[in-house]
């Protein structure tokens, strides 16, 4: 086994999912005689600080760096060819299943005509992985026949291991050889800096269409989230209604979360929503309807009107 983890820079730090990916590598190495060391490929621009940080982790064998202004905003077209050449040296290539990884890895798979297993949530053996299908209704165990296993990983399904950070390993700066595509140009990014990110939050407070307006959503869901230092989530129905932005959507087609505590407030519990939150450790549901499916996935439930309950809860915290 020889593993490569591909990562990027977010807010001047390395993508925090890297530490979860290290855990995945350890699981792949498992009880076999494989060495649980991995190479890390970091791509982007002005990476010096984060490269040094990554090199400290004991699980890292070698850090490969492609640092170039053309990769300030990473477009898959501007790096996929070069990475496609690198992955040939490895048996396992892992990337976080975020918008960066989901956009990039399948393009590399296409160039190499290799299969990929998307959004793995568990490792059975070096060739066998589990992933959810059918909106989380089914957990499938999939064997890869490929010599190079391309995997995107739902990082928040894996703990961050206690990984020692006190070594310093080899750092290899690679020349940027990928042609810069004239066919695609980055124009702008419109992101909100959040105090707590949804996908890695320890606590998530989610509201649904029953909030009735953006104002209510802000006054009730956001207030409670602020009080608890939690991330804000929303059902698709609430997003469509304009109560919360798209990136708050939890579910099959939104973000997948696995926090310690998940508040589902006025959420019915449609399968597509459950798909995004069912790995939450403790779920607390508040709903007027005692038969709402969300209670089947909740650890604690309170039947009642959110407009009555939540403001009082906020006051008492």
């Amino acid at each position: 086994m020889k593993a490569l983890v591909i990562t990027n820079k977010i807010n001047n730090k390395f993508n925090p999912s890297l530490l979860n990916l290290f855990t995945v590598i350890k699981k792949i190495a498992g009880n076999s005689n494989y060495e649980a060391k991995t190479d890390v490929l970091v791509i982007g621009y002005e990476l010096n600080n984060i490269v040094a940080d990554i090199a400290k982790y004991q699980v890292v064998n070698k850090v490969l760096v492609i640092d170039n202004p053309a990769l300030d905003h990473i477009l898959a077209e501007n790096i996929a060819h070069q990475i496609a050449k690198i992955v040939g040296n490895y048996t396992h290539v892992l990337i976080n299943a975020d918008s960066f990884g989901k956009n990039l890895l399948p393009r590399i798979a296409g160039i190499l005509e290799l299969g990929q297993i998307s959004e793995i949530v568990s490792v059975v053996s070096p060739n066998i992985f589990k992933k959810f299908t059918y909106a989380g209704n089914i957990l499938s165990e999939i064997e890869s026949f490929e010599d190079i296993k391309l995997l995107t990983v739902r990082s928040n399904n894996f703990e961050q291991d206690e990984i020692l950070a006190n070594q310093s390993c080899e750092i290899v700066h690679l020349e940027y050889t990928n042609p810069v595509s004239s066919k695609i140009k980055f124009i702008s990014r419109n992101v909100e800096d959040k105090l707590v990110n949804l996908d890695s939050a320890k606590i998530v407070v989610t509201g649904g269409i029953s909030l009735e307006s953006k104002e209510n959503f802000d006054n009730i869901i956001r207030q409670l989230a602020n009080k608890l230092n939690a991330a804000v989530g929303a059902s698709r129905a609430a997003v469509e209604a304009g109560f919360a932005p798209n990136d708050c959507q939890v579910g099959q087609t939104g973000t997948t979360v696995a926090p310690d505590v998940y508040f589902a407030i006025g959420i019915s519990g449609a399968v597509q929503h459950i798909a995004g939150m069912k790995d939450s450790k403790t779920v607390i549901a508040i709903n007027t309807d005692s038969t709402a499916p969300i209670f089947e996935y909740a650890d604690y439930g309170l039947i009642g009107d959110l407009f009555d309950i939540v403001p009082k809860l906020i006051q008492k915290i």
Binding site: S99, K185, S188, R189, N190, E192, N197, N246, T255
Partner: peptide
Amino acid sequence: EIENGTETI
């Protein structure tokens, strides 16, 4: 659609 917002290309 990307994390925490959008980007235009």
